[in-house]
Design a protein around this nucleic acid. Structure first.
Length: 836
RNA sequence: GGGCGGCUAGCUCAGCUGGUUAGAGCACUUGCUUGACAUGCAAGAGGUCACUGGUUCGAGUCCAGUGUCGCCCACCA
């Protein structure tokens, strides 16, 4: 379903711009997702009784290519079924040779600029995936754990532990005691002032560690004294660097205790924890134990508790890169939608750490760094590597390449330009770079968007896109996030099979806002399906209503014809504006409203009258039909970006009927977006009056308990202001639309008999000429209406009586309120006159 | 510990730079197999726009604070 959202949004944007005649490219492709892919493939081969090591690097990677080909096929098929009109001839993959080259070149460029370096540091390590992971892949959550207080005995003058003097430290990870190299207290803490400078003994291993003072220690927390394990804790690491303390790694790569752990070596970290606790208890040095809520980081992929690990790694120095990316956003050269994500983006960029880009995995691009026996590093962007060590000239044969691969996001970060041929200035690159819109989920704004901004600006000197459109997460009926692990992912293809891709696309677009999550409920999908069904049926009507024989259209357009063209012009203008500003939901809602409420509910119903009028000439019927068909055709153009399938199907029928309807374009996908046309305010107003009157009369029928099927005589007393032609043209539609016959025109100012409910509109006052008993007596409708009018009038009178309002509000606002007041007074006058 | 967002009809949500009587879909009530569509048509009911204060002629909309739910970021043992 994640696919369905981005395909829908991107495809809608792209189809719109193609219809506009813009030079449009939607380049499809996928990344190689190294850690996730290995995680999945490891499981698959495990079922075959194999492991990564049993297969070996080469065969494992062969399997991976095969697996990836299948996955890509599935994703491509899904996208196509959803209607993705991407340029499949340019499909790209982050493991293809173009990407590989871009990765090498980009990395060398970074290294040359001193923005990539190799160094020893503490990184997040997943003991199950056996690789470094980035801060972002280390997901923190609150968990209940235990905090223990442990006694470290002080060293006596003779160098032995003092059984009666100790310093107590608090820890949540007792096994790391084995890697402690100090105890720290706050310099101003009176309790421990005398301890500073002395040594304490670790409970095991017989190691003496110094007690140091450091302001980073929180006096209030725990005992106020903290054990320092530099190789296994980020705080401790920083402190150790300040105090020049040794760093002892006691964990192996799978998080079992290593040989530094002495007698604990070989135990798993949690076994060792229990063992350490048991011994401390036995020695009487476990002072306290209590439940403790803490934050624990787990591997995003496999949920294993992450270990900080001291190792030599490749890093990207992000400071200068982030500064530039941030400046771009601040200056508005790249806009993030919705706006408030700019703050989120800025906050992250301002607090960014260097990026550990190396991964101890197989599936990915190997870091193009070569080491010579003398320790020199040569970074090369050549596919075959360097000829010789850049520092000492040793031949390539004596160099060995780094075995670590890049974080997938490194190659993904180059996507906007690596896919267009960079570092070469290819025609595609010149034509399409920088790109315009980056559409993706807000959940990967840091992983991907931030990296593309940083690397794009660094590599190409240009912002890789001018707009970032972030979509939200799709949640299921209960508001639960759909995730593969929870197994509540609904298969988009199953939905497509059931209700069609168009309906799914519509449901995913309407009523959503960028950056906000949405609930995709069954009811919403139903509504979307109903809409595509509605379109189909409206088209069926239009197609079936073509007059026989079809003649040259003639005669003046009727009111509904003028009106629907005006409404269409308005709908077109709005849709254009909305799509230009990426208001996808507004666009979807707007065309829906036009197609259903204006076109189907009012125009088609009115057009039926004209199409079936017996006295109409062939030419007049042809004109009436043409208006309906033409409007339908334009509506299809408006809807096509969002609902490509139904619209295309209907289009082909219209084209078959008369190519003039489709502008001689057999395919809607390549047809043009409708040009704007002028609105017709006169028709808008006249039709609004007619609609108001129709509604009023229908209301009278319902309120009066008139059976829906029966014809009722109607009396209409035209308003003095209404012109005769307008009344005449309205009558034609009034009759069938309100099921009233005959309609008697009374003199202006005529009032209905007392107690007969009437409806007042700009066109006049109307009431049902009921035979006795057919209309329930009473003027409830009129009373209610009069009350409404009185409230409105009172409100406006108060408002207009305020000098402040009249003097300080803009003239047009004041005038508008005055007009409204006049209008309401007029309506009330005729209504109260009628009531007697 | 910081930051961000939501709070509008029974439900899911629109509501742009403050200005008609606050909207839609679904659900609900009533009536309709009217020759495109019952996946439909017509009419209707339903809201102190979370709360408090402020700015303003005018606040769902802007400002401050409170509550509540959710999310993101963060190296407190």
């Amino acid at each position: 379903n994640g696919h369905a959202v981005f395909v829908t949004l991107e495809d809608t944007m792209v189809r719109y711009h193609r219809m506009r005649g813009d030079d449009t490219l939607w380049l499809p492709g996928v990344d190689h997702a190294s850690i996730a892919a290995q995680f999945v493939l490891d499981k698959i081969i495990a079922e075959e009784g194999e492991t990564r090591d049993s297969l070996g690097r080469e065969r494992y990677l062969e399997r991976m290519w095969q697996f990836m080909a299948e996955t890509r096929g599935v994703i491509g098929e899904q996208m196509r079924r959803l209607g993705a009109s991407a340029d499949w001839s340019r499909e790209r993959f982050t493991m293809d040779p173009f990407s590989a080259r871009a990765v090498r070149v980009a990395f060398k460029k970074l290294h040359d600029a001193d923005l990539a370096y190799r160094g020893e540091a503490l990184v997040n390590w997943c003991p199950r995936c056996l690789t470094t992971i980035s801060d972002l892949e280390n997901v923190h959550a609150e968990e209940m754990g235990t905090i223990w207080t442990v006694r470290y005995h002080l060293a006596r003058a003779d160098g032995t532990p003092d059984p009666d003097a100790w310093i107590s430290v608090a820890t949540t990870r007792p096994e790391t005691i084995l890697g402690d190299t100090a105890v720290a207290v706050h310099p101003d803490d009176d309790r421990y002032r005398a301890f500073v400078g002395r040594d304490a003994f670790l409970p095991f291993l017989g190691r003496r560690v110094p007690i140091v003072a450091d302001a980073s220690v929180q006096r209030e927390f725990g005992t106020g004294a903290v054990k320092i394990t530099p190789a296994h804790d980020f705080d401790d690491y920083a402190l150790a660097r300040r105090h020049d303390l040794p760093m002892i790694n006691v964990l192996a790569e799978d998080a079992s205790m290593n040989e530094q752990a002495g007698e604990f070596a070989g135990m798993d970290r949690y076994e060792a924890r229990e063992e350490v606790l048991a011994r401390l208890r036995a020695m009487g040095d476990l002072e306290a134990e209590r439940a403790h809520q803490m934050t624990i980081g787990r591997c995003e992929r496999c949920d294993t508790v992450v270990e900080p690990r001291l190792s030599v790694q490749w890093f990207v120095r992000t400071g200068p890169l982030a500064e530039r990316a941030l400046a771009s956003v601040r200056k508005g050269r790249t806009r993030i939608m919705p706006d408030h994500f700019e703050k989120v983006f800025a906050h992250w960029m301002e607090n960014i750490h260097d990026w550990a880009v190396g991964r101890q995995l197989w599936w990915g691009h190997r870091i193009p760094a070569w080491y010579c026996p003398d320790g020199h590093i040569t970074v090369s962007d050549q596919p075959e590597g360097p000829d010789a060590c850049a520092a000492c000239g040793r031949p390539a044969t004596e160099l060995r390449q780094e075995t670590d691969i890049f974080d997938t996001w490194f190659s993904s970060g180059l996507w906007p330009f690596s896919t267009l041929g960079w570092p070469d200035e290819t025609p595609d690159y010149r034509r399409f770079y920088p790109t315009s819109v980056m559409e993706t989920g807000y959940d990967i704004i840091f992983f991907w968007v931030a990296r593309m901004m940083m690397l794009g600006l660094f590599c190409t000197g240009l912002e890789p896109f001018h707009t970032v459109y972030l979509h939200g997460i799709v949640r299921g009926d209960g508001g639960v996030k759909m995730s593969k692990t929870k197994g509540n992912v609904s298969d988009p293809l199953a939905v497509v099979d059931e209700i069609g891709a168009d309906a799914l696309r519509f449901a995913l677009t309407v009523g959503t806002a960028p950056g906000s999550d949405q609930r995709l409920t069954a009811a919403k999908l139903d509504g979307a399906r109903n809409f595509s069904n509605k379109l189909w049926n409206a088209a069926r009507f239009v197609i079936g209503a073509q007059p026989e024989p079809m003649a040259e259209p003639e005669g003046e357009p009727t009111l509904p014809e003028r009106w629907i063209r005006s409404r269409l012009a308005d709908a077109t203008a709005r849709a254009t504006r909305q799509l230009d500003s990426l208001d996808m939901s507004g666009y979807a809602g707007g065309v829906y409203d036009f197609a259903w409420n204006d076109y189907c509910d009012w125009f088609i119903e009115a057009a039926k009258v004209d199409l079936r009028r017996e006295e109409a000439s062939h030419g007049e019927r042809a004109r009436a039909w043409w208006a309906a068909a033409e409007t339908l055709a334009t509506t299809l153009r408006l809807l096509h970006p969002l609902m490509p399938f139904v619209t295309e199907a209907i289009w082909s029928h219209l084209h078959e009927l008369d190519p003039a309807l489709t502008g001689d374009e057999p395919l809607l996908v390549t047809a043009a977006w409708p040009a704007g046309s002028v609105q017709d305010p006169e028709a808008d107003a006249a039709m609004a009056d007619l609609i108001e009157l129709v509604r009023g009369i229908r209301n009278l029928r319902t309120e009066g308990g008139v059976p829906a099927g029966s014809w009722m005589p109607l009396a209409l007393s035209p308003a003095a202001r209404a012109d005769a032609a307008a009344i005449q043209s309205a009558l034609r539609y009034l009759e069938p639309l309100t099921r009233t016959r005959p309609i008697e025109l009374r003199a202006p100012g005529t009032t209905p008999p007392s107690a007969v409910p009437a409806t007042t509109s700009a066109l006049g006052v109307a009431w049902l000429e009921a035979s006795a008993g057919q209309v329930e007596a009473g003027g409830r409708a009129s009373e209610a209406r009069a009350a409404q009018l009185r409230t409105g009038i009172a409100r406006l009178e108060t408002l207009l009586a305020q000098p402040n309002f009249v003097e300080r509000a803009p003239a047009d606002v004041v005038q508008r309120e005055r007009d409204r007041l006049e209008d309401l007074r007029g309506q009330l006058a005729s209504l109260t006159g009628d009531l007697g």
